[in-house]
Design a protein around this nucleic acid. Structure first.
Lengths: 229, 229
DNA sequence: ATCTGGAGTATTGTATACCAAAGGAATATC
DNA sequence: GATATTCCTTTGGTATACAATACTCCAGAT
């Protein structure tokens, strides 16, 4: 009998246009370089709906969500604009990030398995000391993955989700600053110390190292970054 | 000449229905006891728009924002429901809260003026030792204000705003748990120690005390609270 | 030449109409 | 009497029409 039945998958009933558009727009915004001088920050509802071949309504609902999230700013009767964070806001984001990630480090040292902590080490397996300078882009990606991994290993969904929102903006900043000074090399050293503290199950140390590592990034940006604003 | 000028305020042109509705709904949701057994958790778009005497469109946009914020859950083709956080989620919120508030404490001990720190002490001026037990409700309010004050004094807008979202749910939990055990009394003692650490400009101690105080709340809830779920 | 006023256009905000899906009730059938 | 099926109501999703506002550009006046 079963063979005769029409085998229809329980197609994803969660096909809501507004969600799709939300994801699509978010993806588009995060992948573009918001801070480029020639970036087009204006979003046109109508053009968007035409390009996506749907009506304006779901587009508007998606935009409302993005505004709540802080990615775009809707000026009544004026239009929708992609938000450029100011230097001050970026610095605040780094502070919050530091708070979240250091708490994550504490949780890991208390709860994570040895294997989970070991997985952090593997991330850096391909980068052996001096090779870093020549592969900044790849290292930048690993760097970002490391910080994401810490948040994820905390096993605190909310910690991870809260940080993720900040991450959209942190990503481009981290990628840009990593090549400055000698930050990549120092970054690896910091990361190794963090991993060692986690392996030693030293919650206080791990927390402190993570916090200081991130606050260092903040200090660096405060001093040297001018392409914001 | 300046005296002759017509002093017109830049009237708030930001009167957008969806924002008004958003505020209105948020206010309504936060002020109701979500965790009461008989709480009506279902929201009806049509009924809402009729009551507010506007169309469904702005209501829907407001709901989209509330969903993004996590206050309501929209089930496609089913309806809109006010979200009841699970015990696990509440515990995660407390973790995140602890991370944020302890960072705030660190910032205060590093940056706040003496007057600002002194203002924390004033909050508790009316509660002298034994009087607490008889005025649980008032103390509960003070307790909540204390934690909000710490976030605010950090002078980190984002820290404050991030915590505020959690606060909607934390508020009712704090209010309910404060009367259990002997928590009010111990709470005051904790708070005083925190203030002392801030006055001493001991960032590490202040941070630790705040974190432990909040994590204590978490541990208490984990053990004793059953009205969630 | 510049500034002001107005008309036209473009774009957003709101309302309404229609559609599709889900849940419930009623009826029919076993 | 129980279960299954069908239809109807309810409700959210989407499209579109209409209203209101803001920007632009041009003309005329100073």
């Amino acid at each position: 009998m079963a063979h005769a039945e029409l085998s229809v998958e329980p197609i994803d009933a969660n096909f809501s246009l507004k969600d799709k558009i939300y994801d699509s727009l978010k993806q588009a915004i995060t992948s573009m370089n918001i801070y480029a001088d020639d970036a087009e920050l204006r979003l046109d509802e109508r053009r968007l709906s035409e390009k996506l071949e749907i009506s304006r309504t779901p587009v508007r609902e998606a935009l409302a969500r993005l505004e709540q999230e802080g990615l775009v700013h809707i000026v009544p009767r004026r239009g929708v604009y992609i938000v450029r964070k100011t230097k001050q806001e970026i610095l605040e984001m780094i502070l919050v990030w530091a708070a979240l990630e250091s708490m994550a480090a504490r949780l890991i040292s208390e709860n994570a398995t040895d294997q989970e902590i070991a997985s952090l080490r593997k991330l850096f397996a391909t980068f052996k000391g001096e090779e870093v300078q020549g592969h900044i882009d790849e290292y930048s990606e690993t760097n970002i993955q490391f910080h994401q991994a810490i948040l994820k290993l905390s096993c605190c969904e909310l910690l991870w989700k809260t940080a993720e929102n900040l991450f959209i903006h942190m990503r481009s900043i981290r990628a840009r600053t990593i090549s400055e000074d000698d930050r990549a090399k120092r970054s690896i050293i910091d990361h190794m110390h963090i991993i060692e503290a986690l392996e030693a199950r030293d919650a206080n140390l791990a927390e402190r190292l993570v916090r200081e590592h991130t606050l260092n990034l903040g200090a660096h940006i405060k001093k040297h970054v001018e392409y914001l604003e």
